[in-house]
């Protein structure tokens, strides 16, 4: 029996894995223009450009680490989330068979990889209701290299002389950039949450990746911090792949969440240049009406 939701989700996975969104692509083109000619940083970015073009043309993964599969679903009130989850799991399984996703999910206790990409917590699906009739589904594929360099700081952080204020936040965020060099494939994008608890801090930091790279934070304090971190990080000379160079970050997105008085977390998620996120708005028949990025 044909299942239009299944088809739409497989197409969402395919496109997310094989095609970089326009905003990220444009930022990479700008970074290539700004690197010094004849450097290995420039060569690295040229290979990246060629890779993006090739992946799109061949409809194959931009990066072999197709990452953890994270869905963000905005659904109307009364929507059947159980049915969605079952269909999403089937879509992941079929996308894996077709090579849009690597066999990338391992049983943490036995070490077994059954090749389906399904298991506890895989894929991750976050549901939110909204008061609109349509279904919106965003997808992030987040590779392990950049996930491993994420960091959560608890302030005060004495070694970094980071106190519980914006200067302290700035210090730890820039420390995360320094420590991530080379390991998360740069130039990267930061998603940051100031506050929250250990779980929501990371959760909200990752949701920042759903923002457009070129947008501006409506909160002037956070906007200033975003611009400052971006500028400062790009003055450090870390460069693409950590080879040295002018582009260390393509973007910085920061949000804040309330905290309890005893806790002050700054959670930093790092996304590599292979910034795989897409989204779709679906029609009443679950066909794709519009791409979001």
């Amino acid at each position: 029996m044909p299942d239009p939701l299944l088809d739409s989700l497989i197409e969402l996975i395919r496109r997310t894995s094989a095609e970089l969104p326009d905003d990220v692509n444009a930022a990479l083109v700008r970074s290539l223009e700004s690197e010094k000619k004849g450097t290995i940083a420039e060569s690295a970015l040229k290979i990246i450009e060629r890779n993006i073009e090739l992946a799109k043309r061949k409809s194959q993964p931009i990066c072999q680490d197709t990452g953890s599969v994270v869905f963000y679903v905005q659904c109307p009130v009364g929507y059947d989330q159980i049915q969605f989850e079952e269909t999403a799991r089937e879509a992941v399984k079929q996308a894996t068979k077709r090579g849009f996703l690597r066999q990338n999910s391992v049983d943490s206790i036995t070490g077994r990889n059954d090749g389906t990409n399904l298991g506890p917590g895989a894929p991750a699906i976050h549901f939110h209701q909204h008061r609109f009739p349509q279904l919106e589904v965003c997808l992030i594929l987040k590779g392990g290299g950049c996930e491993n360099v994420g960091a959560q700081y608890s302030l005060p952080a004495e070694k970094l002389e980071a106190n519980r204020d914006l200067d302290g936040c700035r210090r730890v965020i820039l420390d995360a950039v320094l420590q991530a060099q080379g390991k998360g494939c740069g130039p990267g994008i930061l998603g940051v949450c100031i506050g929250g608890d250990r779980a929501t801090g990371y959760e909200f930091s990752k949701q920042q990746f759903l923002r457009f790279l070129g947008d501006r934070n409506p909160d002037p304090v956070l906007d200033a911090l975003e611009q400052d971190i971006l500028k400062t990080a790009n003055e450090l000379g870390i460069g693409p792949m950590g080879f040295g160079g002018r582009t260390t970050l393509l973007g910085v997105k920061i949000c804040a969440a309330n905290r309890v008085p005893a806790s002050y977390f700054v959670s930093v998620s790092y996304m590599c240049w292979a910034f795989r996120r897409q989204g779709v708005v679906m029609g009443p028949d679950s066909s794709i009406q519009r791409w979001l990025y």
Binding site: A44, R50, N51, G143, M241, F243, W273
Partner: peptide, 13 residues
């Protein structure tokens, strides 16, 4: 030897 991270298609070719 440092290969370009994420350049899965160029390297697969």
């Amino acid at each position: 030897l440092h290969a370009i991270g994420g350049a899965a298609q160029v390297l697969a070719e």
